Amino acid sequence: MTDMISITTLDGAIMPAYRAVPAGEPKAAIVVIQEIFGINPGIRRKCDTLAEAGYLAIAPDLFWRIEPGISLDPDVAPEMQRALSLMGQFDQDEGIRDIEAAIRFARTEGVAKVGAVGYCLGGRLAYMTAARTDIDASVGYYAVGVDGLLGEKHAIAKPLMLHIAGDDGFVDKDTQAAMHAGLDDHPKVTLHDYPGEDHGFATEFGKRRSEAAASLADQRTTAFFTEYLG
């Protein structure tokens, strides 16, 4: 079952979210953190796939404070430009607080553990979620700007996995090297590199998807969540 729900934020407002519910008792809950394209068909499909695997999946509409209901296609140039503009308006610290509200909501749904998975901007937010919340396990795909967040790595107390696109147009080689230098020895962090792959390689739909790399990354994510969430 899928539906749109309302989550009360930490400041008492109401945030919309997409929810996908498994057929049986959920093994755990996973908060799905959007790209800069909003809760679009790809993010909804990520939630649906997690529900098919037995997880309660919740994707909070993190752009709701700017404009609720954003759903953009990265393969359409004007929509890509709009997405980049929205990212510039987005308050990431406030976004983490909204993710925390989604985590708290998930914990009321009868699950023992809550994880998070994010893509692009959501990959960065997954790292921040690992450092700033009590999330049980987090995964970030092609996270942007993590080199600027390495000062928070000491706060990561639960497992975090990051998938790094080797030829990422938004994460250059120096940034990737800084991620490895800063995180390779962290006992809770695992980094996986995908040589030759560009940003967005694990998207569900559209031109950016790279089937082999997406399948490998998703297999690793599945094994990671099975180990740490159940």
Rank of each mutant, 00 (worst) to 15 (best):
A106L: 08
Q219N: 11
K27R: 15
M1Q: 09
N40V: 12
F170C: 00
D3E: 15
G110A: 06
F63M: 14
P187Y: 10
A77W: 00
I58R: 01
L191M: 11
T108R: 09
V117Y: 01
V144N: 01
A101Q: 01
G196E: 04
G200F: 07
F201V: 01
M15E: 02
V32P: 00
D193I: 01
A77R: 12
I36W: 08
R44T: 12
G95R: 03
E35L: 03
I164C: 09
T108L: 08
A223Q: 07
V76S: 09
T221F: 03
L229C: 05
T8C: 04
S215N: 08
D75T: 13
T226S: 13
G42M: 06
T222Y: 09
P187E: 12
G95A: 14
A28Y: 04
R220I: 06
F225S: 06
T108A: 08
I164F: 09
F225N: 06
T2S: 14
D198P: 00
L150K: 01
R45Q: 14
M1S: 15
E197W: 00
E227L: 13
A130H: 02
G230W: 00
Y142L: 03
A155C: 07
R208M: 09
T203G: 14
C47V: 07
I39T: 13
A155W: 11
V117T: 14
P22I: 10
K173P: 00
T2C: 09
D172Q: 08
V111C: 05
T221H: 03
E152Y: 12
V189C: 02
M1F: 12
R45I: 05
V76E: 07
I164G: 05
L183R: 04
R44F: 01
G12Y: 09
V144R: 03
P195Q: 04
M1C: 10
I70W: 00
I30V: 15
A116Q: 07
G88K: 04
A217D: 01
P60G: 10
R97K: 15
D185T: 15
M4F: 13
I135D: 02
A23I: 13
Y18F: 15
A181F: 11
A143K: 02
Y194S: 04
R44M: 13
G118A: 09
D73R: 08
V189Q: 00
A29P: 01
D73C: 11
L229T: 04
C120E: 02
T49L: 14
D147V: 03
P60T: 11
F224R: 06
G122S: 08
L162F: 00
E35V: 05
I103P: 00
D218K: 12
H180P: 03
L72I: 06
P159Q: 11
P16E: 06
P60D: 06
G38K: 06
T221L: 10
I14A: 14
V189M: 02
I5M: 10
V76M: 04
G110H: 07
L125D: 07
M161A: 14
T49D: 10
I14S: 15
T221A: 15
G123F: 11
A28H: 04
A131L: 04
P22E: 02
G182T: 07
Q81K: 15
D75L: 05
S138R: 10
A101Y: 01
A102F: 07
H180V: 13
L150W: 01
E100K: 15
M4T: 15
E211H: 12
E197F: 00
E211F: 13
M80Q: 12
